[in-house]
């Protein structure tokens, strides 16, 4: 289970619990490796840029004055969107690769232990915790099971959807026969036509923005209310626990 400190994540150097000054004794576990943390923040920045530029591709800014030859605003916005898209896509591929070579927690984003009855019970437990039905939260080294489900749906599936539809739309500009068209050209005929793919891609943006609202809120809330660190963990990689009680 995820709430048991597994051997992999306890590298000898890191295993030593930092004894912090204060009344309670705090333990710390190295959870998120540097590539995972780096990916998290690059991905977050890419999403921010993509959502902002994407919004203004669908609803352009007010008209620029002067000659057409003196302006390239829409061109720059689209260029930024495409570049951020490439960064996100390459980062996502790297993150998928890292789920094979990284530690136990690096795998959580891509694999749900749906067959594990214990895990399914924990999902329900977490649901009750968020509905104020449980008094005391549990300790988790990695994602809590409910968070893992949310991550999988919003990020793994959501980003895959955005990358696939995004490259399908990009292929329209890069023309027939381009590698984008060879790899993703099937999307538009599958959906029906180009206009629908644009719409789905825009709905996808709102889907991910909705996730960001939930994600930031829950991260801060759990940082305060749960028994482990959340926000600082994605910066330092270390998860500290606020008490030494078991479970």
């Amino acid at each position: 289970m995820t709430d048991i400190v597994d051997a992999e994540s306890l590298s000898p150097k890191r295993a030593q619990a930092h004894a912090l000054p204060g009344a309670t004794h705090q333990t710390s576990v190295y959870v998120y490796e540097a590539p995972v943390r780096l990916w998290h923040w690059i991905n977050a920045a890419a999403i921010l840029v993509l959502a902002l530029t994407g919004f203004f591709i669908g609803r352009p800014l007010p008209t620029m004055p002067g000659e057409a030859s003196a302006n390239f605003l829409m061109g720059y916005i689209r260029f930024t969107h495409f570049t951020a898209g490439y960064i996100l896509a390459i980062g996502f591929l790297f993150r998928f690769y890292w789920s094979f070579v990284g530690n136990f927690h690096a795998k959580q984003l891509f694999r749900l232990p749906l067959n594990d009855p214990e895990w399914r019970k924990e999902v329900l437990f977490e649901l009750r915790w968020y509905l104020f039905l449980e008094k005391r939260p549990k300790k988790y080294v990695g994602h809590n099971p409910l968070a893992q489900v949310a991550m999988f749906i919003f990020m793994t599936l959501g980003l895959t959807f955005m990358i696939v539809t995004g490259f399908a739309l990009y292929a329209e500009g890069s023309q027939r026969g381009s590698w984008q068209d060879m790899l993703f050209g099937w999307v538009i005929p599958l959906v029906g036509q180009s206009y629908d793919v644009h719409t789905l891609h825009r709905l996808g943006m709102w889907f991910i923005l909705t996730f960001i609202i939930i994600h930031i809120y829950v991260a801060i809330r759990e940082d305060i209310m749960s028994r482990q660190s959340i926000v600082s963990t994605m910066i330092s990689g270390d998860r500290t626990f606020k008490d030494d009680d078991p479970d």
Binding site: G58, H198, T199, R202, L203, W206, F207, T210
Partner: peptide, 22 residues
């Protein structure tokens, strides 16, 4: 520019739906 999405007989576009959900 944004197309209508018709579900349950209600007409909306992607931004209306997205902004409402958000």
């Amino acid at each position: 520019r944004l197309q209508n999405i018709q579900q349950f007989g209600i007409e909306a576009n992607a931004d209306k739906i997205g902004a409402t959900v958000a």
